[in-house]
Amino acid sequence: MDRNPRANAGWPKGKQVFTSKMSSGVPLTIERTINLYPLTNYTFGTKEPLYEKDSSVPARFQRMRDDFEKIGMRRSVEGVLIVHEHSLPHVLLLQLGTTFFKLPGGELNPGEDEVEGLKRLLTETLGRQDGGPMEWVVEDTIGNWWRPNFEPPQYPYTPAHITKPKEHKRLFLVQLPEKALFAVPRNYKLVAAPLFELYDNSAGYGPIISSLPQTLSRFNFLYN
């Protein structure tokens, strides 16, 4: 048995392996290989601003309460889009203002399929302006977070005394094509944050984004 499948799977930077699935029959949950491409492979244009539904945080929570009464727990999805620079994964984050970052994604419509909803939201947020098709490949869940109350805290579990969490957020790994054109709403900037920047930095990026280095570490990234 090959004790180090990475040795010939492009782990030392430079080697290139283009298969996206392991052919050896190792279950994907054991060895999950993801192709990454350099940031420079992607082109970023701009498009009209995309504003949040809520004008303030209280408004946001008020709408969450209202929606909760009408349609129940909010379901959110977010996409983790990864590129690499110097063979280090970088996560694409939308930056609003100077210190606020978020993953692309948003709220699902009632009954909407998670993956389809994520693709819709990604296209709304980053889709090219000419309406050309976007190739979002979504095959992996990265994590789940719950919001116990109509309040900011979210946890990667539902606290035991909570029977009705108010929001469930699921994060997905989104595999990018080798090259692509994105259009970024003008009120955002798209930044590629290296994992070391996020790691142990919940202060700067919040608990969810800052835990991505840990949750992404299960993947075998190929730096093409």
Binding site: S56, V57, G97, G206, P207
Partner: peptide, 22 residues
């Protein structure tokens, strides 16, 4: 400690605090 709520919800510190106050 891990309280920081996902950034977008606290992007306005005073808002969070307003939440409580109101």
């Amino acid at each position: 400690e891990f309280t920081q709520p996902e950034a977008e919800f606290t992007s306005h510190g005073d808002d969070l605090y307003d939440d409580v106050i109101t």
